[in-house]
Design a binder for these strands. Structure first.
Length: 271
DNA sequence: CCGGACGCCTGTCGGC
DNA sequence: TGCCGACAGGCGTCCG
């Protein structure tokens, strides 16, 4: 599900509901996520004030005065704010009950998501430490991509989806950005000129920015904190559009597999 | 170091 | 109608 735009949409929606609130208690109905939900989470958090919600890549960081919680939505996760007393559905695995009588609730049918203890320095957590730059920050540009691609023979699409290269770009937005930049997704990363990486970096920024403005992409599971979907799906140019005409040249969009992931592209526009 | 494949899970959809 | 395979927004880990 969630790539950077969906996680950022979630962060923005959540922040006003959780910032400044205290956690009354944590209810874990299903601790078996990607990793087990830490045993002592509730004990640590009970009574602690939430200071804010940050995002790093596809991770959310819930900062509290007792330490930070790391949240990841995996493929099918979503976080919502519901009224206390709202009965949980089958895949509503965990609640943070707030002193406002609202509940921050995690739903994750496939359980690829995670809820982890981040401690006092969550950015030093082993899962966050090796992450590359934020694509919307100034440290990310064509030179960075070009430099990281030196000598790499991996296809540019999995290269772009590698969180050590740049965070937040998943399958949907990798497809879209490569189409926008006119680059063949199978092209070896080290065989792309700097100027084309400048185009690609701009495309990544543009696509992610537009998707955030649209509230993210909803294919099936993703909903915002209030249950509404994101509307970027109607803006997708290639993802999920096999056989439909390329919006730029009308050539039918093709689907192939690159790096074990579905890849949609226009063989005429992308070279 | 690098690239590629594999699981982890549940749900949905299309074809027969 | 029912069954079965393919596929799904991620990513850590393992293998050669």
């Amino acid at each position: 599900m969630p790539e950077l735009p969906e996680v950022e949409t979630t962060r923005r929606g959540l922040a006003p509901w959780v910032s400044g609130r205290r956690v009354r208690r944590v209810e874990v109905r299903e601790p078996r996520l990607r990793w087990p939900v830490p045993e002592g989470l509730g004990a640590r958090l009970s009574g602690a004030r939430i200071l804010g919600v940050r995002r790093r890549g596809k991770y959310l960081i819930l900062d509290t005065e007792a330490g930070a919680v790391l949240l990841h939505l995996g493929m099918s996760g979503s976080l919502r704010i519901v009224d206390a007393g709202t009965p949980p559905g089958p895949h509503d695995h965990l609640d943070f009950v707030l002193d406002s009588d609202r509940v921050l609730r995690l739903r994750d049918p496939r359980r690829f998501g995670a809820v982890l203890w981040g401690g006092d320095r969550p950015e030093g957590h082993r899962l966050l430490r090796a992450l590359g730059p934020e694509p919307l920050d100034p440290g990310f540009d064509g030179s960075w991509l070009h430099g990281r691609a030196r000598g790499r023979r991996v296809a540019v699409k999995p290269f772009l989806m590698d969180a050590r290269v740049v965070v937040g770009v998943g399958n949907i937005y990798a497809n879209e950005a490569l189409w926008a930049a006119g680059i063949d997704p199978r092209r070896p990363a080290g065989r792309i000129a700097r100027a084309r990486y400048e185009r690609l970096a701009r495309a990544v920024r543009q696509v992610l920015g537009a998707a955030i403005e649209a509230g993210g992409t909803t294919l099936r599971d993703f909903v915002r904190e209030d249950g509404r979907p994101g509307y970027f799906a109607r803006t997708l140019n290639v993802y999920g559009r096999e056989g439909r005409p390329c919006p730029r040249c009308a050539t039918p969009i093709r689907r192939i597999v690159v790096g074990q992931r579905s890849t949609f592209w226009c063989a005429r526009c992308q070279r």
